[in-house]
Design a protein around this nucleic acid. Structure first.
Length: 411
RNA sequence: CGGGCUGUAGUAUAACGGUAGUACGAGACGUUUGGGACGUUUUAGUCCCGGUUCGAAUCCGGGCAGCCCGACCA
């Protein structure tokens, strides 16, 4: 991508209303645009990050046998009636212009509609277990959207649902998803804390959350500094400065961002929808379900909260919009353009700052803001030595790299 | 949904109740390229509706929107 062609431009100043770092940096960099509180457009830089995350999630979902599907965003009332969740105070109701009453809601969760469909395809123990997932925009009428991508009214979510013969099989699978989640977050550059939590509007049993410790987080967890056992404050009996119930270690209260959660739903939805199967002996049993969510857009915001230096973002390589930010100085666009082509041909994702009217300082500042992992500068100075300047975003020092060796350097 | 604060060019900010100004951005021309360049010039704004007033960005009422605290929540 050539910066001169990009749909967006960077902003020198953040909009005055924004306080959270992720909102400031992502808006300034042209990754996202706030259309309304908690409602965002993802421009190409931002969407590229989302796509990187989606790819990681796809791979890990595939590893636990998740089948990718796509359910509707518009969910008709009849699908909510069985569980009584039409009346839950979370969603946006949707009414046709000519209709008096709303008959649809924008999906804020998909357990209900999926359970209904599962009953059409799951008949016998031979059909179990099954797991399907989707990436969907969820709509929740947040009374207070805030903190950039951390709490939206419209947000991208990965939701996985699993169906089992027994609790035992559910928990076997639950554990494999737990491991998959740890991998996903790690690949996104985040350390997560596995946290015991309540079930909210989804289930009465305990659930588990993946929390990233951060002061902008809205959750409060009590975490043992020794064994990292953690509980969400909403259900916790632990207290700040107390002793860990598992290992006796020191417990601390921390703010955190919930980036994922896993719910052993049990029989709630299968009972409501009559989702049953025939076991080996011909007996009818209810299917046991689990659901597993990751807030994709929130995850992106969280990555920025964790990986920034105030000046700009430091994208972990796995989720960076581009690997290399190439800058042409002294109007050496001819030479830089050649390097741009070469790198692209070598399969390297490059954001090329080919702008002619911007000063060097402005180009450097934009590179720092956008935060690609590697910066390559082509200038009079470097070309005298048949080389380019090579610098990691996370480091201060730069080195000269010979033109022939640049692709090696990036391997 | 309760409490508080705030709405002025694309962005950030000024203007006693009296000519809406400045900087950045954007356009044109020229000069310029190693940490947010320079000159000339152009462009573009008072959230909406009502009220008070000779006169409202400014005061009042009502909406709407945004932010912060709380409640709620992925």
């Amino acid at each position: 991508m050539r910066l001169s062609k990009l749909f967006t431009k960077t902003l020198r100043e953040a909009p005055k209303d924004e306080e959270s770092i992720n909102a400031k940096l992502l808006i300034r960099g042209g990754f996202i645009f706030k259309n309304s509180a908690g409602v965002y457009t993802f421009f190409s830089l931002g969407w590229r990050v989302i796509e990187k995350i989606l790819k990681i999630v796809d791979e890990e979902m595939d590893a636990v046998g998740g089948e990718k599907i796509s359910m509707p965003a518009l969910v008709e009332k009849k699908y909510w009636d069985a569980t009584g969740r039409w009346d839950v105070d979370i969603g946006f109701e949707v009414r046709g212009k000519k209709e008096k009453e709303s008959n649809f809601t924008l999906g804020w969760s998909h357990e209900d509609i999926l359970s209904f469909m599962a009953s059409k395809f799951i008949n016998s123990y031979k059909d179990l277990p099954k797991a399907v997932y989707q990436f969907q925009t969820k709509f929740r009428n947040e009374p207070r959207a805030k903190s950039g991508l951390l709490r939206g009214r419209e947000f991208l979510m990965k939701d996985l649902y699993s169906f089992h013969e027994s609790e035992k099989d559910l928990f076997r699978y639950y554990d494999s998803v737990k491991q998959a989640y740890f991998k996903i977050f790690e690949r996104c550059g985040l350390k997560t804390i596995y946290t015991l939590a309540g079930g909210g509007a989804f289930t009465i049993s305990n659930t588990h959350e993946f929390q990233v410790l951060s002061d902008v987080g809205e959750d409060t967890v009590f975490i043992c500094l020794k064994c990292e056992y953690a509980e969400n404050s909403e259900i916790s009996k632990l207290k700040d400065g107390g002793q860990c119930s598992k290992c006796g270690g020191f417990v601390q209260e921390k703010k955190s961002i919930e980036v994922g959660n896993i719910f052993p739903l049990g029989l709630k939805y299968s009972e409501a929808f009559g989702l049953k199967y025939l076991d080996k002996d011909g007996g009818q049993k209810h299917v046991v379900m689990g659901s597993y969510g990751i807030g994709i857009s929130r995850l992106m915001g969280t990555i920025v909260e964790i990986h920034n230096d105030g000046i700009g973002i430091l994208w972990p390589e796995n989720v960076a919009p581009f690997k290399v930010h190439l800058i042409a100085l002294n109007h050496r666009n001819q030479e830089a353009g050649k390097i741009y082509e070469d790198l692209q041909n070598a399969g390297v994702e490059v954001l090329y700052d080919d702008r002619l009217d911007q000063s060097p300082g402005e180009k450097f500042a934009d590179a720092d803001l956008i935060g690609c992992p590697f910066r390559v500068i082509v200038s009079e100075k470097t070309l005298e030595k048949d080389s380019v300047e090579f610098k990691k975003r996370a480091e201060d020092k730069s080195i000269l790299v010979n033109l022939n060796k640049l692709s090696n350097q990036l391997r």
